[in-house]
């Protein structure tokens, strides 16, 4: 039984005409799989490799370089919240924000809340320094955060799904 659904395979194939070779579809394919399954398992790596006519080790090599992608041992929760710890946020309370969210959610950076809904991470500069401290909810930046406003946001995410 393949782990990648036909719909996901089709989404990956749709990327082919954009590039002169299939290897260049590695990152797009990893994103498509990761978004859908919240992880890229070894089985998924093998199936991506087959689609892209690569050796699985080549897909694995690329994937493991970007610490962004989670494996089956360590899947993402439904939502990913990244707190910026780089200089402009640090100067305006970013580290305290991260520490406070760790305490309130009972997780360390990288871990997922016990209900499986929110994965908390640290991030390097999110490019939202004009609204420091800021965080990223999945891929959207939220600026000028306080521990309370960030918790309100996170509670909203947990209520959604």
């Amino acid at each position: 039984m393949p782990v990648l659904s036909e719909a996901i395979r089709e989404k990956i194939r749709e990327q082919f005409p954009k590039y002169p070779n299939k290897r260049a579809v590695t990152l797009p394919a990893l994103h498509i799989v990761h978004d859908e399954y919240r992880q890229v398992s070894l089985d998924a790596i093998r199936e991506i490799a087959e689609l892209l006519e690569l050796h699985p080790s080549e897909v694995h090599d690329t994937m493991s370089f970007y610490q962004f992608f989670r494996t089956e041992k360590d899947p993402l929760g439904n939502h990913r919240v990244w707190v910026c710890r780089s200089i402009s946020c640090m100067l305006r309370g970013g580290e305290e924000l991260l520490g406070e969210l760790c305490n309130r959610l009972h997780v360390k950076p990288g871990e997922t809340t016990s209900d499986g809904k929110v994965t908390l991470e640290f991030a390097e500069c999110l490019g939202g320094c004009d609204g420091a401290p800021c965080l990223l909810v999945n891929d959207e930046c939220e600026m000028n955060m306080t521990p309370d406003s960030a918790m309100t946001l996170i509670d909203g995410l947990r209520a959604k799904s």
Binding site: R23, L30, H31, L52, Q67, F68, F69
Partner: peptide, 19 residues
């Protein structure tokens, strides 16, 4: 995929090529 080195022009090229 969240890596600073992809801004270096040849790192960017390698990354675009799927490596």
């Amino acid at each position: 995929a969240a890596a600073y080195i992809c801004g270096e022009e040849t790192g960017l090229i390698e990354s675009l090529e799927g490596k």
